[in-house]
Design a protein around this nucleic acid. Sequence first.
RNA 1: GCCGGCGUGGCGGAACUGGCAGACGCGAUGGACUCAAAAUCCAUUGGGGCUCACACCUCGUGCAGGUUCGAUUCCUGUCGCCGGCACCA
Length: 937
Amino acid sequence: MADEDFTHRYDAALAGEIEVRWQREWQERGLFRTANPGEPGFDAAKPKYYILDMFPYPSGAGLHVGHPEGYTATDIVARYKAANGFNVLHPMGWDAFGLPAEQYAVQTGVHPAVTTKSAIDSFRRQLARLGFRYDWSREFGTIDPEYFRWTQWIWLLAYSSHYDTEAQAARPIAELEEQLAKLDAEVLVPVARGSAGRVSLRWSVCAPWQRQSKLDDHRLAYLGEQSVNWCPKLGTVLANEEVIDGLSERGGHPVLRMPLRQWMFRITAYAQRLLDDLALVDWPDSTRTMQTEWIGRSAGALVKFAVEGFGDLSVFTTRPDTLFGATYMVVAPEHPLIAHAASGAGGATIAEYAQRARNRSDVDRQAESKEKTGVPLGLFATNPVNDERIPIWTADYVLMGYGTGAIMAVPAHDERDFEFAKRFGLPIRQVVACLDGSAWTGEHAMSEPGLACGSSHGDLTLDGLTQDAAIARIVAWLEQRRLGERRVNFKLRDWLFSRQRYWGEPFPVVFDKAGMHYPVSISALPVELPVLADYAPVVSDRPTPPLGKATQWVNTTAGAAGVDPSLLPPSTPVTRETNTMPGWAGSCWYYLRYCDPKNSVRFVSKEAEAYWMGPKGVDLYIGGSEHAVLHLLYARFWHKMLYDLGEVSTKEPFAKLFHQGMITSFAYERADGSLVPASEVDLAEPQCRELATGACVTRVVAKMSKSLKNVVTPDEVVAEYGADTLRLYEMAMGPLAESKPWNTRDIAGVFRFLQRVWRLAIDERTGGTLLARAPNAAVERQLSRSIHKVGHDIERLAFNTAIAALIEAVNAATRPTQLKDPEDGGFTRDQMSRFLRALAPFAPHIAEELWSHLGEGASVSLAPWPSVDPLQLVDDTVEMPVQIQGKVRARVMVPAGADRDEVERIVLADAAVQEHLAGRAPTKVIVVPARMVNLLV
RNA sequence: GCCGGCGUGGCGGAACUGGCAGACGCGAUGGACUCAAAAUCCAUUGGGGCUCACACCUCGUGCAGGUUCGAUUCCUGUCGCCGGCACCA
């Protein structure tokens, strides 16, 4: 209830009125419109700063308070940088294609185009209400045809490129084709359509489909037959990164593996560069480590073992130095050797085992991982170093997707092989001796580095060599005899880019009757989604894209689809690709489009790209760590392709990355561990009680979720306190990077702070401006120090301590109630002006309102950052604690610039010091200037 | 199991590069104002001891050690929580 005397108090209603008014004003005046080079209003003299939030996916549920945390942080930095004379690019838009929108649409029966649009509208409305200084004129969504036209264009670029391993860069595939034709090169191509068998032919005698097959082996976006992750529940296949522990990342549904022909990205070609260039970026170590581990580089050797009646069986090993210890081999259940073995004696058992292992989902395979399983193939291989005959087994602990899908087993020096050998009674032979000379116990595999032993045959010996030396010698020996070679292997696999879904970007590609694929020409882009009344996933045990239902759209002609007539006569009947791109597609390059969002002739103009992205990419990128691998790896990959092809100027897209922590919430737990909704708990100190029963409940920290009824939305907080308070509270909670619990009770603290700010400038009874006549020295000192600290803290993204500094300034200036003449206290006009400029990045609306009360004109958002008099930051004298034997016993005042001798003299003259010394002379005096003194006796 | 991060008052958190632990806020307690309450303003607020009181003493940054004149900070071990990876040969 507002007190009648205080009609001009800063309360929720007034805050709301001020905020909405200024938001409209900013928008109408186009205050945050950012000019590109060459446009009117562009100031080339200023440095640039590109600050970016991770692309939000607007869900139907709207924002919760976790969303604005990162956005507030970037907004503060953006406002601060603008005040410091930077051209700031700070855009916002929508990642709007993808599975959740489609699932929601299927549930509700409303078309995803409609639900997505309304979700975007509510996100935009909610964000706008928080007063972020986005340049809304640059807004776009991934579903806009003018945007996904260029997503398709980039895909075509990858489709039309190959990776030149010599140049270590992407090049147009036309160059490769030309070269093959010119040299009339021998190429390895399929014997027949769809056949795994290969034949070596000259380019000139290859059939067109054989040529295409050869080129497909090199395209960066290619159609490949792969074992894919098929999720029947989601009705689509998923990328490796989207599968966690054999379950879909989204929804946690079971995933099966099955071979399928799908569009892939040859991201593996970039593995080494994706790894190396992590050194170029300023990213959290944890994220760099995650990417490093995901890429999973390991150096070793490829070794060929001859198999009787089959040919060579290649294995990858990181320990070629243990080759003499190989006592058996194992191939994955999916390995081609299985078919060969299954046709022989005992084939039924083998086929059965392989079939079972293959059909089991990854979850099952892991659940049984404690006990090793496997069957012998009845085949034998020859160890190339000692001609020993060793058995070949199949076991599901060997994965088809890594290396060659086969291993040499060295049970003495590999824990997995050791377990397997123990289980099946296979021989274990030590070929590495412990460095300290102790004997190997034989209880566990000995995988630590040591000296080779028992590794001699003929003229080859590794005995006595260290691991590195032994590896060097054995690899040289193998290479000389063409039995093996040095090899680097990566865990990273090619990126599966097809989804059997409706709500995604269509691929700009068509197929003729024979199954040859043809690109849609660039001039015919975008390929738009057909309007489909029934876009529900097709229930099937095979991946079946819903776009297949749009028969009219699917069955067309080359001319209608926009295929270049030189590739295919326009009347040729063709079918369109019915898979769509995954949700990641649009977020792989959105940061580039923001530089030049309205460009209709290029995806981004060279000039705008060079200006905003130079010299090292986006200057500050803030978003959640859940994207540490997926989005951030994919975007880096696209960026590198574009870089190779001369389309962008930087090697990396994001120079500096920062992850905000999660905002959690309190939940209340009964003694039996069940949870009570927050609304049904009495929060009295010190013991919280359940309202209904009065029983004691314990407060625990949990994620915000509907089931715990502890979700807080920005709308509620804005209604109760205003947007400035919400912004301030989110930043005051703690360090941006940490996860922190939302505590409704604490919000009052920052709200009261804003009320005090308001009271400093405004007479709550009259609404008139109220300022100090003359500056107070102590207030000025505190203000200067606060402003200095705020600037410094914003630079290091320490917003919580910056806010504490602002509060200290206000506390210093606050007028006691007893003060007779209000003009005796508070800030002067000049002090208030400086204070408001420092407050504005955090609480822009109240700052703007008070700014206009001061009659400062224009907008506080256009005002420069306040300067600080360096003299205000230093003291004439400093207090130094004096320790005696490491314990503080006295404090002395010394002149700020005092040298050690002078400090020592002052300290020894101090009465308290003398008393504690009790006549003893210090044996040592440690003086840390302006910090402390320690006397040892 | 492996890798990474974090453990500080009743609560959220602060502490630059090894230099006075607890900034700032919440909560709590007392006071001023008020008929009263709210709001506001002022003061106190880590534990223990001692004192009329100021002062002073002592313990204290998950736990146990170590390095150092001095450790929340560095090192070793250990416990707990969070995140990532998980048969990658």
